[in-house]
Design a protein around this nucleic acid. Structure first.
Length: 274
DNA sequence: GCTAAATGTTGAT
DNA sequence: TCAACCTTTAGCT
């Protein structure tokens, strides 16, 4: 599920498997042929995740080359994008395979991304300049997000999804974080008290870090699950996301669903009353 | 086994 | 407001 935690996880895994070594880059589908050719054989120097964006820095043309020419691979998975990873010999390419990375030990296949392109450092800067603070980044400044929220009449449920306000949150974390803090998704941003934002941010950091570790989104507390111990069942993982019509885990009220800005928004009308 | 919807964003209309 | 991206999964039959 590509919300921010997934991308940070990918950045870490790709770094572990590919950084510091030359990599063969190919585009079996052909749609990224020019980019692949430009990167093929270079060394992977670093990987970074900012919100839902993944950037891979490759080696420059030569030692002492103009730093402005250092190439970055920029990937955004969008809704369908997916990495498939493996060891040893990569399988025969099948289907629409946009990008394949291969070194002596590992391979990584990328399908269906909404963005897969080569950027120079300026291009990377333009991508990052459009992003609000990312709860998964230690350098993130939550006050910058609050400044945006606090001067906006837009509903909180909308603001949390805007990547230029906060980056990395998707539809699942949006719904769940609002529930966990008892916030009405329709509350205008400017009515959010600063203390509540502090709490919400701290909770996002905790939840999303757990998401990076486990590779899934679990937001329920043990006392609100059908089983308190052991692995969290899929149907126990969320409070409201995709639980439309089912009883709220805390108060029993039927969970509501509404379409907002083209996305489904789930909330409990009792625990998240205006 | 099939269909619809899904974690997201962009660019065209 | 809608199509595109084009895979995976939930929920049917």
């Amino acid at each position: 599920m590509p919300e921010g935690h997934t991308i940070h996880r990918h950045a870490r895994i790709l770094r572990e498997r590919f950084a510091g070594r030359p990599v063969a880059v190919a585009s079996p589908q052909g749609r990224f042929a020019a980019g692949a050719a430009a990167l093929d054989g270079r060394t992977v120097e670093a990987t970074e995740a900012h919100g839902k964006h993944l950037l891979v820095r490759f080696s420059a043309d030569a030692a002492g080359a103009d730093p402005a020419t250092v190439p970055y691979l920029h990937i955004h998975l969008g809704l369908y994008g997916k990495w498939t990873l493996g060891e040893g010999e990569p399988p025969e390419p099948r289907g629409a395979l946009r990008l394949r990375l291969v070194n002596d030990e590992h391979w990584a296949d990328l399908r269906g991304p909404i963005a897969c392109e080569v950027l120079d450092p300026d291009g990377r800067g333009l991508v990052l300049a459009k992003l609000g603070p990312d709860p998964l980044r230690p350098d993130a400044d939550p006050d910058a997000a609050y400044a945006r929220i606090h001067r906006s009449r837009a509903p909180l449920g909308l603001l949390l999804m805007q990547q230029d306000v906060v980056s990395g949150i998707g539809n699942v974390y949006r719904a769940e974080i609002l529930f966990r803090h008892g916030l009405d998704p329709a509350m205008p941003g400017l009515l959010l008290p600063p203390e509540t934002w502090q709490e919400l941010w701290a909770d996002l950091v905790t939840l999303m870090r757990a998401g990076v570790r486990s590779g899934r989104i679990v937001t329920t507390r043990p006392e609100h699950r059908s089983r308190r111990t052991g692995p969290v069942r899929r149907e126990d993982a969320h409070y409201v996301y995709r639980r439309h019509g089912q009883p709220c885990r805390v108060c029993g009220t039927s969970v509501e669903l509404r379409e907002a800005a083209g996305r489904k928004l789930y909330w409990c009308p009792t625990d998240q009353a205006p």
